[in-house]
Amino acid sequence: MDEFRRYLAIVQKDLRVEFRTREILYTTTLFALLLVVIFAFAFLSDAGKSRDYGPGIIWVTVLFATTVGQNRLFDRERENDCLWSLLLSPAEPSTVFMAKATAQIAFAVMMQVPTILLILVFFDLGVTDPFSFIAVLALGNVALGLVGTLFAAMLMNARMKEVLLPLVTYPIFVPVVIAGVKVTAVAVGAPIAEDPEVWLKFLAGFDMIFAVVTVVLFGRMVRA
């Protein structure tokens, strides 16, 4: 129970700092909106085909904007060695990690809600299967959040972290993007023969395995 209170305290701290400064939310949301506009110019030649590239646009936007946010996630912990203070506190390293990951996922979701609504409007996409649409984004964000938070934390002090973070995480995100695009395509009514349930289960499995592995690795990596 104590551990859960510590977890809540760290999440609360991150959310409070963010709501006061709005650094991550403001910059990533604006970045995502600009990406959508760029995609509109890059692709929108035939409005009838938006179902073909709409899911891809959603996932590329989510991926890029989330990565930008993840790069900033530990900036506050870097000053005055705050991350080490957190790790020296009675909280377990796994608690610190889960709290940071939760905050990251919360920021990502807050950024994505207006962005994705805007994509649906701009590209005239109708969601025919809202459950799959929301479920795949939720599961996908957990996956991006877990892996991204782990490497963002470890690369916090690296000289080239902005470039290194996507280099390291994108190969691991490939299955998430594949599953995400497939389910989203089905959810907006694209005529492809895919069973969204299989991909949702796949993503749930991905999330569970990586939740365990990233928590264990974080504990080992900060100690090594």
């Binding site: 892996v147 782990l150 002090n157 990596m221």
Partner: peptide, 17 residues
């Protein structure tokens, strides 16, 4: 990422992940 213990453990972590 540097050859200090951060760079080394993040590389080890990636190879395991």
């Amino acid at each position: 990422a540097g050859s200090d213990r951060f760079g080394r453990s993040v590389a080890a972590g990636l190879s395991i992940l």
